[in-house]
Design a protein around this nucleic acid. Structure first.
Lengths: 110, 110
DNA sequence: ACAGTTAATCGTAATTATACGATTAAACGT
DNA sequence: ACGTTTAATCGTATAATTACGATTAACTGT
């Protein structure tokens, strides 16, 4: 008898574990955001520079401006980075809190 | 002047950072492997049970046996889990070493 | 008001991921 | 030897991701 579900939406975690729905969401979304070479590179560049504008990333990476903007959007949606609009530019920086939480959750998984 | 590269293969990290090529690879591949709800669920189930067979996961998750086998393959390729063939069954467990290293790398990123 | 700068969004093509059922392969029990 | 059990692999459909150029939107400076 095979299962019919085409998605994982209906997961009811049957085993008692220490993760809330929100924890799971952080784990999946942050992992997904970090699971790409360009985004890891963006993250590290951001970490080194503290804060930087999209333009600097465009200069640094061999990718189109629109592609980098898309990657920044993914990182932002996952809460990994924060963007502050300053005039015509946008300054990005790492969301330390979110990353600390992610680090903690990975720690709990070991 | 737009860039022509269609991939990120040729990245030469221009900023001095503490990550080796291998570190980056661990970060990307483990993140990618964990960036999926079904695989997080598999991971947690594996963590709770210590060791388990594919069959137990098939019973636990609302997914086809082939799909779960595919997810296990992704986790295995990323080094997140280890599979031991025992007769007709395969016993999976978490690769503690790999996860510890990943945890450490995430820590370095904060 | 208007040209310039910066980044986001749109439209789209190509690739990769996710899911399934069916089949195959390997080891076990009788 | 033969059927059973268990998990991997194959073939394939659909969805999501990744990349691009073009366009749009918003703020600056003159």
């Amino acid at each position: 008898m095979t299962k019919k579900l085409n998605s994982i939406e209906s997961f009811i975690p049957c085993c008692i574990d220490e993760f809330t729905e929100e924890d799971r969401d952080i784990l999946v979304s942050v992992s997904k955001a970090l699971g790409n070479e360009a985004r890891i590179e963006i993250y590290n560049f951001l970490k080194m520079s503290g804060v930087c504008m999209t333009g600097q990333l465009v200069d640094h990476l061999p990718l189109a401006q629109s592609t980098i903007s898309q990657h920044l959007s993914v990182l932002k949606k996952a809460g990994v980075i924060i963007g502050n609009i300053e005039g015509t530019a946008t300054n990005y920086c790492i969301n330390q809190e979110r990353m600390k939480r992610y680090h903690q959750l990975i720690g709990q998984m070991i």
